[in-house]
Amino acid sequence: MYEGPVQDLIDELGRLPGVGPKSAQRIAFHLLGAEPADVTRLQEALQKVKEGVVFCDVCGNVSEESTCRICRDARRDPSAVCVVEEPKDVLAIERTREFKGRYHVLGGALDPLSGIGPEQLRIRQLLSRIGSQEITEVILAMDPNTEGEATATYLVRMLRDFPGLTVTRLASGLPMGGDLEFADELTLGRALSGRRTV
């Protein structure tokens, strides 16, 4: 046990995800020896993230203003909306540079085992958004796991009644750079059923 502030810092750092007691100690001593300007910058960044970051009124993504950068951008296609679980997923899709539309962040997936039902997600906001804006395509980009699939099923049922709306789901299949013989039967089955003519 160290004295006072050093131990407090180690304890606080140790509560972060993926940081164990040894890493916490290493980070604490690094900060102790760092330039005061560096520590101040970190301090300001931490403060800003709690005070300055809000969730976008339109899509639910993390943002500095009431509407996020993507929703404000007039060059983005307003007719296509990609529905994702978490803000992290927006970044993952943005990195592909393939999608030019806008997003809708649900804030999770339907998971009755953790007590998360449709009311806990931003599904109502999605439906009112589709009802009021000129959206013609909704892309369901939930995680390819049980909860994600169930969420997609639920959304398909809710979106079925909107006239002229195309609902699509991200393709699922074999990862690039892998060997076919090592693919598991579920993924390979999905890849087969979703095959396309070339």
Binding site: L110, D111, P112, L113, T146, E149, A150, T153, Y154, R157, D184, E185, L186
Partner: peptide, 22 residues
């Protein structure tokens, strides 16, 4: 190794999914 992939039949229907979760 998979014996039965019950998930495929369950997640395609929200009512079955919530019942199966219970």
């Amino acid at each position: 190794q998979t014996i039965d992939a019950f998930g495929a039949g369950i997640v395609g229907d929200y009512q079955r999914y919530t019942s199966a979760c219970a």
